[in-house]
């Protein structure tokens, strides 16, 4: 009887810990999703990338299905420079080239970066979910339980993207673009 109680207590504790961790992850995903769509407000794409002035900003998510749902909820009804958001969950690398921004985590992040090299696509990687060496133009990290980010402005320059200096000033580190 006593043994059963111990087992029950352990199971409840494990369940509570899992629930807490899940809540924390959801909250972190929520912050990252908010940050991700707000990044768009500080990035300028080269002319001709958008079909017209009302064309939506297409953000693709590869390898993080729950995050795609959070991002969809977060961006619903939001607009940046008069453009709505279109969140697309992709599984094939080929589809990446149709996106304006891509959030890639896990093993395939490296492949995404290679596939988008030089293309006007804002690549966002996540140090908390996968290889911390592979870094997109924006790379999320968690510092003191707070979501922060690094910016690779040199890569942004290669992709012909212009990042607002005010966003650069908030980054933990910035790899500067070379003066042209």
């Amino acid at each position: 009887m006593r043994f059963k109680r111990v087992i029950l207590a352990v199971m409840l504790s494990a369940f509570a810990a899992a629930a807490s961790q899940s809540r924390a992850q959801t909250s972190e995903d929520q912050v990252k999703a908010t940050f991700l769509y707000r990044f768009v407000s500080f990035v300028s794409w080269p002319e001709g990338v958008f079909a017209d002035a009302q064309a939506p900003i297409r953000i693709c998510v590869l390898g993080a299905a729950p995050f795609a749902d959070v991002l969809t909820r977060t961006t619903t009804g939001q607009r940046v420079a008069g453009r709505a958001f279109e969140i697309r969950r992709i599984s094939e690398l080929e589809a990446v080239t149709e996106c304006h921004a891509v959030y890639a985590v896990g093993d395939r992040a490296d492949a995404v970066l290679k596939a988008t090299h030089g293309a006007p696509i804002l690549t966002v990687t996540d140090g908390a979910l996968g290889n911390s060496v592979t870094r997109g133009i924006v790379h999320f990290v968690t510092v003191d339980d707070r979501v922060r980010f690094h910016i690779d402005d040199a890569r942004a320059a290669e992709s012909r993207l212009l990042i607002d200096p005010r966003l650069l000033s908030l980054a933990l580190s910035v790899r500067r673009r070379t003066a042209s």
Binding site: F42, R146, R166, L170
Partner: peptide, 14 residues
């Protein structure tokens, strides 16, 4: 306008 990004990205320090 200058502190807008800091507020948008919850960066109180900035």
């Amino acid at each position: 306008a200058s502190v807008a990004p800091a507020l948008m990205f919850s960066d109180n320090g900035s």
